[in-house]
Design a protein around this nucleic acid. Structure first.
Length: 330
DNA sequence: GGCCAGGTTCGCT
DNA sequence: AGCGAACATGGC
């Protein structure tokens, strides 16, 4: 097993704990992604085969530096370059948050959430296929069930590499999921519908009939239009791809129930001490949320990431309450 | 046990 | 165009 070291200089501010934590849902391990003891690890599929990427912070939020290591049997110069690009993309290190922060500072609702998540960068999936499968997998099910399905599909169909006695798994390739087919997915508790969507899409990508990676530089509207023609992809999933896989700055998860709930709290205020029996204000409707989100254009991918980030870290309520009712103790 | 989850499609008006 | 049901599963 060969190895190589390199360093990364993210665009400040960059909070490594927050950003790597976001990927793993602040739970240490989530399927393909591991963030334990300050080290983020992930198995990459590079030109010369599977490689393990490990990244840790060696700097601060305002002066960030990262130390990265890549390990692989057939490691060569080209793969090191790929690993470097991959690490930057996964962690969103090259993105400048400043324009978003400028907009957020002038917004009546965003400051508490943005302050609480200061230095969080938008993270990306390694491939559009991965984001698509994860999005479909997560449609209309609780995060708990989604987590189970995500672990199952990774353990069952993800290629693995053993490094220092530890087994690491890559996200399943389109080919592996195409081979698994509908029955292979049904076996691991996917609904027939989800199995059909994922199997079909994986087959098209594996055969080259569908190329999502080339969508990156077209107008967002065109990408959404193209994506939503595909069976299994609606507006929510298409926008999720814009944010998570394709690097667009203005995606918004139209129809997302959690987003509508959190926006209701953010904008209408979470119900406070006067009525402890109703812990949440009413959620926005899908239409309201979509219309309201337009004031955050063209930074809605950031807003989405920050709101979900606050939710995933369990700090959303605290931040929203703190923002609306400064210093009020029970 | 019933209801609901970080949607989408399909079949009705 | 707009509306309701079905979809599979696990937790409350």
């Amino acid at each position: 097993m060969k190895r190589a070291l390199f360093s990364i200089r993210p665009v400040p501010p960059f909070d490594f704990d927050l950003t790597a934590g976001y990927i793993t849902y602040f739970r240490g391990r989530y399927a393909t992604d591991i963030f334990e003891n300050g080290v983020y690890r992930r198995l990459l599929r590079l030109s010369g085969g599977l490689a393990l990427l490990s990244v840790r912070s060696t700097g601060t939020v305002d002066s960030p530096t990262l130390a990265a290591e890549v390990q692989s049997d057939g490691l060569d110069e080209e793969m090191i370059v790929e690993a470097r690009e991959s690490a930057a993309w996964l962690l969103g290190t090259d993105d400048d948050l400043t324009p978003f922060y400028r907009m957020a500072a002038a917004d009546p609702y965003l400051p508490p959430v943005v302050k609480g998540m200061h230095g969080l960068h938008i993270t990306h999936t390694a491939t559009a296929h991965e984001a698509l499968v994860l999005a479909i997998l997560g449609q209309q099910i609780s995060t708990h069930v989604a987590r189970m399905l995500r672990n199952l599909i990774t353990e069952t169909y993800g290629d693995s590499l053993v490094v220092d006695g530890e087994v690491y798994r890559a996200f399943p390739s389109p080919q592996r999921l195409a081979d698994a087919g509908i029955e292979g997915l049904r076996k691991i508790k996917f609904s027939r519908r989800k199995s059909e969507y994922i199997s079909d899409i994986s087959r098209q990508i594996a055969s080259g009939a569908l190329d999502l990676e080339c969508l990156r530089h077209q107008p967002a509207e065109d990408v959404v239009k193209l994506l939503t023609k595909i069976r299994g992809i609606g507006p929510w999933t298409a926008h999720w791809l814009l944010i998570r896989a394709l690097g667009y700055s203005d995606g918004f998860p139209h129809g997302d129930l959690a987003m509508e709930r959190m926006m209701g709290m953010l904008v209408n205020g979470s119900t406070d001490s006067s009525s402890p029996s109703s812990p949440m204000s009413s959620p926005m409707t899908s239409k309201e949320a979509s219309a309201f989100s337009e004031r955050w254009s063209p930074f809605r991918s950031y807003v989405t990431t920050y709101i979900f980030g606050a939710g995933r870290s369990g700090r959303f309520e605290e931040l929203v309450k703190g923002g609306h009712h400064p210093r009020r103790e029970a």
